[in-house]
Every structure is written in structure tokens, then in C-alpha cells.
Amino acid sequence: MKFISTFSCLIVLLCLSCTDVIEINLDEGTVRLVVEGRIELIKESPSGYQRIRLTTTAPYFSNEPAPVAAGARVIVTVSGRNYPFTESHTVPGLYETGS
């Protein structure tokens, strides 16, 4: 019995000790623009507050907040009509419309 339980512990240990964190050098990929936003039209106020956040991709192990894409010109076109978005003064990379 002792024999079996010793080996059961061994097997469980084997199963538990098999994951670890490793260092991997990843090549830096091309930087791409990331557009994060949801346009919601609320029936009562069709010109309500909308926002879009622009960031870029970053190296996978950068461990920093996503780099913001500031100074962009953002226009959303709906049925041929343009809605310009302006960059927030306080949060760079955040583009807003309306109030």
C-alpha cells in the first residue's frame, strides 16, 4: 500500500511539475492600427456621445500599455454622411463626437 501511494504521489508530481514560464525571443511584427469602438445610436438622441479609441499593436512581451495613436483624423461615414471625431484633450488616442 505504501508502495502504491508513493508512486501515486510520484505520478501526480510528474503531472504537476510540467508547466513553467519560459523566455522566448519574438520577432517584432509590423505595427498595425487597432480601432476599438462601438457606435451606438440611441433613438432619443441620435447625435449622442460616441467614442473610438485608437492604439497600435506592440511587441507581445512589451508589458506596457498599448501605444496610443494620437493626432489622427477620424471620420465615420454612415449612408454617405460624414461624422468627424475629434481627439480628446485629456486622453490621447481617444476620439469623440457630440457631447
Binding site: G29, T30, V34, T55, A66
Partner: peptide, 23 residues
Amino acid sequence: TYPESRYEYDGIIVPHFEERNGE
């Protein structure tokens, strides 16, 4: 295939894959 870069979406970090079997 390793992630080539990452991006944030709704506070979650998402890996971005580009080239299949590149690594």
C-alpha cells in the same frame, strides 16, 4: 505560430498572429 504582436481590446490583451508556422 507565435504571436507577432499584441493589442488591447476591452482591457484584455489579445495576441496577434501573422505568419502560420513562422517560428
